[in-house]
């Protein structure tokens, strides 16, 4: 389960989250939507332990798979090396299989700089899924991915997380992407506007 209870966060004077709460139960996918700057990514970063809130409680698994808003790959390494970086050898076949499913296997030796935006997004999803965390956080993960590949990625996420009773937090500003999982949708508002 991922649970944020009455979480507040600010950058200096600017309040990003004010008494924000969110709960994603095991096996459930929650879609977090909202305008730019409303704090969706901040909430995700708090949930995965990269940011500390000024107040509130967080409950989240120790091992979380994350697809960051930016791709966060090591540019000097190939696509395959990047994906294998957090994996143990026994998980390599899983990563290879996932690369085949998302149509990146033939491009696995390419340097990150040689990949298109959509390819990098798919690769980031493969890395997160192959890492096999106890929950999954996707931050604008489907940006730049074509519709066919979006469906394939959604199927993989369902198979590896939701069907295994693991919680998924899906952050997007795109309604269509949010509907891919037929999940509960939460609309965030800017903390300053409240």
């Amino acid at each position: 389960m991922i649970k944020l209870s009455s979480v507040s966060f600010s950058y200096g004077e600017k309040i990003i989250l004010n008494d924000f709460s969110l709960e994603v139960r095991d096996g459930e996918c929650v879609v977090l939507k909202g305008p730019s700057g409303c704090g969706k990514t901040t909430a995700a970063m708090i949930a995965c332990g990269l940011l500390k809130p000024s107040s509130g409680d967080i409950l989240s698994p120790e091992r979380i798979s994350v697809v960051f808003q930016e791709d966060r790959f090591v540019n000097n390494l190939s696509l395959l090396q990047n994906i294998r970086l957090p994996l143990s050898k026994k998980d390599y076949p899983i990563a290879d299989n996932l690369l085949k499913r998302v149509g990146l296997y033939e491009d696995r030796y390419k340097k990150i700089s040689e990949l298109s935006g959509g390819m990098k997004r798919r690769a980031a999803i493969v890395r997160a899924v192959a890492f096999n965390g106890d929950s999954l956080i996707l931050d604008e993960a489907f940006n730049g991915i074509d519709n066919d590949n979006k469906k394939i990625c959604a199927k993989i996420i369902k198979e590896y997380f939701l069907d295994k009773n693991k919680p998924v937090l899906f952050i997007t500003h795109n309604d269509e992407d949010g509907n891919l999982f037929g999940a509960k949708q939460i609309l965030m508002e800017k903390a300053n506007d409240e």
Partner: peptide, 12 residues
């Protein structure tokens, strides 16, 4: 810094 955060999340 983004890569360092990535390495923390993925427990490198």
């Amino acid at each position: 810094k983004n890569l360092i955060d990535m390495s923390r999340v993925f427990k490198l």
